[in-house]
């Protein structure tokens, strides 16, 4: 028999490396035709680091994004980034790009002041041009500047930037105190499930996941991250375990056929995402990272929905069909409404 239920949860995800020491760098160069070359160190794992940072650079330089070429290839002249980990890139790397843009804008302004024969304070940069504030017609395009600087006057116009949230800190061993801010994103998930009480299979029929991300620099990619986290999150909550008989090391999992990560068939037919923005004081335009968290949020909502459906709290994940059936069995035969399979292992009970 299929029984349906609904569950919700609220989770957090800390963004940036705990304990600080989390630097990133960026370089922006003005090319002879006025186009810009953005070089960053953030690895693109699929999360879209390069796409996002290119958007930040184009806005910070106030140019058409089509004129910005960007690379994150960690080749010889590559700025450093502490890594694409800890949901840190969206919090940290945009600052490095903003700093590099500020540096380059100052250099372009100084060069334009000299060519336009005006005070540098009178130079404004907007829409790919440098002009006199008191006479906007008196201007040079970035293409003019790039050409004259690089090929006419033999000047290289490069902006560099670096940023980190905090220097390295450790916890106080007695209290855990850490002298550092934690930038936190918040996720709320509502899941609807159908539990097959004969097979123990749990089908997620609808899932709503919302993340408060400070500022969504690219809402399409934020959507991808929210919906995408469900893949690992649902696997964690319902299916994947390399050691199904933990702590027994026997596993028998050698291929993806044995390791049943969610497929198209497992994704809920109704999948709804939501983005909420409460700008964080530390982020560029308030942006903070969150993408790891979208794997966290589905699990507790799904497990709570199972409880709503069949009246048992599953205390272990993944809640595989075997676990669900055993939990239903324990409830039927002993009236237990909480289930943890290791209860009979005395060694596990300190």
């Amino acid at each position: 028999m299929k029984k349906t239920g609904v569950g919700m949860c609220l989770v957090l995800h800390p963004t940036g490396r705990k304990g600080g020491g989390d630097p990133s760098q960026a370089i922006i160069q003005l090319k002879p035709d006025g186009s810009l070359f953005l070089k960053v160190g953030a690895v693109d794992l699929g999360q879209g680091a390069l796409t996002m940072l290119r958007q930040v650079a184009a806005e910070a330089m106030d140019v058409d994004i089509a004129t910005v070429y960007a690379s994150n290839r960690s080749d010889d002249l590559a700025p450093l980034s502490a890594g694409s980990a800890a949901s840190r890139v969206t919090l940290v790397d945009p600052h490095a790009v903003m700093e590099a843009a500020k540096d380059l804008r100052a250099k372009i302004a100084a060069f334009a002041a000299h060519r336009l024969e005006i005070d540098v304070e009178n130079v404004e940069l907007a829409d790919g041009k440098a002009f006199a504030k008191d006479n906007p017609h008196h201007h040079m395009t970035f293409a003019d500047i790039g050409m004259i600087a690089n090929l006419g006057e033999g000047v290289i116009l490069v902006g560099t930037g670096a940023w980190q949230p905090a220097p390295v800190q450790g916890h106080d061993p007695e209290t855990g105190y850490l002298d550092q801010e934690s930038v936190i994103s918040f996720g709320c998930c509502v899941a609807e499930v159908a539990v097959d009480t004969d097979t123990g299979e749990v089908e997620v029929t609808k899932l709503v996941q919302v993340w408060e991300v400070g500022k969504a620099i690219n809402p399409l990619m934020v959507k991808q991250q929210i919906n995408g986290g469900l893949q690992i999150g649902m696997g964690f909550a319902l299916r994947e375990n390399l050691f199904p008989h933990y702590p027994d090391p026997a596993h028998g999992i050698e291929s993806l056929a044995d390791y049943s990560m969610p497929t198209f068939m497992d994704y809920p037919p109704e999948l709804i995402h939501g983005i909420e923005e409460v700008p964080h004081p530390m982020g560029v335009k308030g942006a903070k990272g969150f993408s790891e968290g979208s794997a966290t949020a589905p699990g507790p909502a799904i497990i709570s929905a199972i409880h709503d459906a069949v009246g048992v709290w599953i205390h272990e994940v993944p809640a595989t069909p075997e676990v669900v059936l055993r939990a239903l069995d324990a409830k039927e035969h002993g009236g237990a409404t909480d289930y943890w399979s290791h209860q009979d292992r005395s060694a596990w009970l300190a």
Partner: peptide
Amino acid sequence: VTGYKVRGAGALEAMKKAAELA
């Protein structure tokens, strides 16, 4: 627990939106 003060909190806003979408 480690002493940091929460800034830019958004848990309630996320929950309101999730309830609405659900």
